[in-house]
Design a protein around this nucleic acid. Structure first.
Lengths: 234, 234
DNA sequence: TGGGATTTGTTCGTATGTATT
DNA sequence: GAATACATACGAACAAATCCC
C-alpha cells in the first residue's frame, strides 16, 4: 500500500530476506545495487527502504548507507512486551469469533512447518513459524491488529537473528498444535495461557547474546528473493 | 524519523491539522500546493504523504490525489478495538513503573485541557485530549507501544471528525483526573477499569454518524500549522 | 463523448555529506 | 590530517494517466 507495484516487490523481497535471516543484522544495503538487482530506479528503492525503516527492520538516515537493523536489548524487550499484549488480544478475538472451518488451514500450515523443520531448512522454518502467528492474527478479523502483529513478528525474527541461538527453530511446532486445539475447543482461557507460555519460551531463547556476522554478498542473496515474492501480505 | 527535517515539518503540520479537524475527511491534498505551502519540493511532500498514508490518516495511490481519510465504520471499530488493548497495557505498565514525579506534569496537562475547553477552543481541546493519552503512553517506557498508541489515538481523532458529534470534547477532563489519581495511588485495577470505561465513552460518542463536509481552502488552513509545529512527538 | 488542463509517477542529474586511504 | 572516492539527499523535467468541462 502506498508503494507502487515494483517498489512493493523490492520491499517484500527485502522483508522476507531479513525474516529468513538471509540478510543478517548489520548488512549494508546501498541503493544502487538494490536498484540494479530489482531493475528499478533509486527513487523506488528509497520508498521501499523508507517503509522498512518505519517498521524498524533497517536503520537509515543522515546520508548513511542503510543497514539491516541491530536491535538493542532494550528494543528487543520492548518489542516482546508489545507482542505479548497484541497476541493475547488476537487469541481472545480468534476464540470469540472461532469458526470450525478455520482449523484445517491452520493445521496444514503447521504440517508445513514440521516438514521444513525435518528437512533442516532452518530459514524457511523461521519464516513459517512467524507466518503462523500472522495467520492467527487474520482470524481476529481486525486488519489493524493484523498489521501491528505482523510488524512485531517480523521484528522478532530479526531479534532472534541477533540474540537467538543459531538454528533454534523459532517456535516449537507442538506448541502451535496445542494452541489450535484449545481454540477449536473454545477454551479461550487455556489458549491465552498457552500463547503466553509460548511467547515466554521464544523470548527466553531470544535473549542469549551471540556474535553477529556482517557484509555479505548482496547480489547472490537477493537474486532468489527478487522473483515471485508471492502475494502481498495485506 | 526517516524523514528529513523539512519533510518532518510538513508531516507534523498535516498531522496536527488533521487531528484538530482543521482538515476534514475527504479534503484533497494535491502535492504541488503542499510543496509551495511548505516551501519544499514534491519529493519531500511525497515522503510526508507516504508516512501519513502508512498511519491511515490519508488515502493515496492509483494516480489519484491524496485525500484526508474517511474511515469506514468497520475500520473505526477495528481502531477502537486495538486502542482498548494498547491503552490497557499502557495503564498496566505505567502503574507498575509509577514515579511520584510524574503526577505534576500530567495534572498540568489536564489543566491545559480544561482551559481550552472553557475557552471554547474545540479544536485545541480535541488535540490536547489525544495528547494526554500519548503522554501516558510515554510513561510505559516502551517506545514501540508509544508509537502504536500515538497512531491509533490520532486515527481516533479522525474518526470523531467523521462519526462524532460536532464539538463533543473528545475526553471528559474529569475522567483524566480520576485516572491520574488511581495511578498515583498505585491502584492498577481501578486505573485499568477507569480507562476501559473512558474509552467506552469515547467510542459511544464516536459512533453517531453525521454528514461530512469537504473541499476547503488548503492555503489558509495550513498557513497557521506550517510554522512552529513544535518539537517532534518522538 | 472528447479534449484540454491538471496532477501524479518516474527518471536522472547535481550537490552535499560521509568514509576511507 | 587532507584528499579522493563514493553514496545519499534533493530537485527539475518528462511522460502518462486522470479529472473536469
Amino acid at each position: 500500500m502506498g508503494l507502487s507495484q515494483k517498489a512493493d516487490i523490492a520491499y517484500l523481497a527485502l522483508r522476507q530476506a531479513i525474516m529468513e535471516q538471509a540478510l543478517t543484522p548489520g548488512t549494508k544495503l546501498p541503493e544502487d545495487p538494490l536498484a540494479e538487482q530489482f531493475e528499478i530506479s533509486r527513487t523506488l528503492v528509497r520508498a521501499a527502504l523508507a517503509r522498512l525503516a518505519s517498521e524498524g527492520l533497517i536503520e537509515v538516515g543522515n546520508k548513511r548507507t542503510a543497514t539491516v537493523a541491530q536491535p538493542s536489548l532494550d528494543e528487543a524487550r520492548a518489542v516482546f512486551e508489545v507482542r505479548r499484549c497484541l497476541e493475547a488480544e488476537v487469541v481472545r478475538l480468534a476464540c470469540e469469533r472461532w469458526q470450525s472451518a478455520w482449523r484445517a488451514p491452520l493445521e496444514a500450515h503447521v504440517r508445513d512447518e514440521q516438514a521444513a523443520a525435518k528437512a533442516g531448512q532452518a530459514n524457511v522454518s523461521i519464516r513459517l513459524a512467524g507466518e503462523f502467528h500472522i495467520q492467527l492474527a487474520r482470524l481476529s478479523g481486525n486488519p489493524l491488529l493484523t498489521r501491528y502483529l505482523s510488524e512485531v513478528t517480523t521484528r522478532c525474527s530479526l531479534i532472534l537473528a541477533v540474540y537467538g541461538r543459531p538454528h533454534s527453530s523459532d517456535c516449537a511446532v507442538t506448541e502451535h498444535r496445542a494452541l489450535i486445539d484449545a481454540m477449536a475447543r473454545g477454551d479461550a482461557a487455556k489458549a491465552m495461557k498457552l500463547m503466553a507460555e509460548h511467547l515466554e519460551g521464544i523470548e527466553a531463547r531470544a535473549l542469549i547474546p551471540r556474535t553477529v556476522r556482517s557484509d555479505q554478498d548482496l547480489g547472490s542473496i537477493l537474486a532468489q528473493y527478487a522473483q515471485a515474492v508471492g502475494t502481498p501480505s495485506r
